[in-house]
Amino acid sequence: MHIAEGFLPAPHALGWTLVAAPFVVHGARCVVKEVREHPESTLLLGAAGAFTFVLSAIKLPSVTGSSSHPTGTGLGAVLFRPPVMALLGTIVLLFQALLLAHGGLTTLGANAFSMAVVGPWVGYGAYRLVKRCGGGLLPAVFGAMALSDLATYVTTALQLALAFPDAESGFLGAAAKFLGVFAVTQVPLAIGEGLLGVLLFRVLTVN
């Protein structure tokens, strides 16, 4: 779920850009350092970015009959750590905006914050937590992918609620509205994405 170009009022668009910027800049610094030490990692990181983009092109069937696309950032966070994902996720969002017309330029900051910062960190946290609590790899991966997807959607809903508070019930009412409206597609998708992660890791670990 990407916030479309022009949908956020200018102060919000600018605000979220400023909020996301430190994370993305930090990610960029990590990448620059990595590339300086290992020049060949440019290709690996490029491949990782391409994989994240392509993963979001996999159509997941949902039980309700509609189908949706996973975000893939939870998986990236597990594989490459959240700081790197902040940068790769932002690159992928830029590509989605310019190649697929998903999202936009002034909303890039807001989308990057939900999808490339909050999602990966929550997913990575869930992954570590499940593993620390003695859960196996597959539950950890399920948690990482499902929760990062869910966290991204909740963040987006809150961003919209902040921008468009309900005239009567204010921010909380608006949050409830946006969470409710997008839950129809996003909650099954989060579960689907978690399942996809489990199936993917099952194939990989057999190899």
């Binding site: 620059v32 590339v35 491949a47 391409a50 983009f53 392509v54 940068l87 790769l88 690159i91 992928v92």
Partner: peptide, 17 residues
Amino acid sequence: AVIEVASVTYRMLFVLL
């Protein structure tokens, strides 16, 4: 370095698609 990573992403996403 960031531009190069993004450029490889652009080339490779078509191969992967």
